[in-house]
């Protein structure tokens, strides 16, 4: 189990979710990925993407213009 980071700042939706999807495809069940983004749409899209793929959002944080979302990869 390892932790990973993804910088998706300045990318507009749906690119943050596409980059998250590409990254998750390389990870193992139990791994976590923290995505940093600036498009507020990611707050909606990344959790929605996780729900349809059976992964889990363990934390979301919003600080000024920056959003961080942590995803736990499950064995879907």
């Amino acid at each position: 189990m390892s932790h990973h980071e993804l910088d998706a700042r300045q990318l507009l939706c749906p690119l943050p979710v596409i980059r998250t999807q590409e990254r998750v495809a390389m990870l193992q069940p139990g791994d976590t990925l923290t995505v940093r983004c600036t498009d507020r749409g990611a707050l909606h899209d990344i959790p929605a993407w996780c729900r349809v793929h059976g992964h889990m959002v363990t934390a979301t944080r919003r600080e000024e213009a920056e959003i961080t979302i942590t995803v736990k990869v499950l064995g879907a």
């Binding site: 979710v17 749409g41 349809v52």
Partner: peptide, 14 residues
């Protein structure tokens, strides 16, 4: 900005 933002394709999938 006040409109709900959703990715339609993801919404449909859900």
């Amino acid at each position: 900005r006040d409109k709900p933002k959703r990715n339609n394709a993801l919404w449909v999938a859900e």
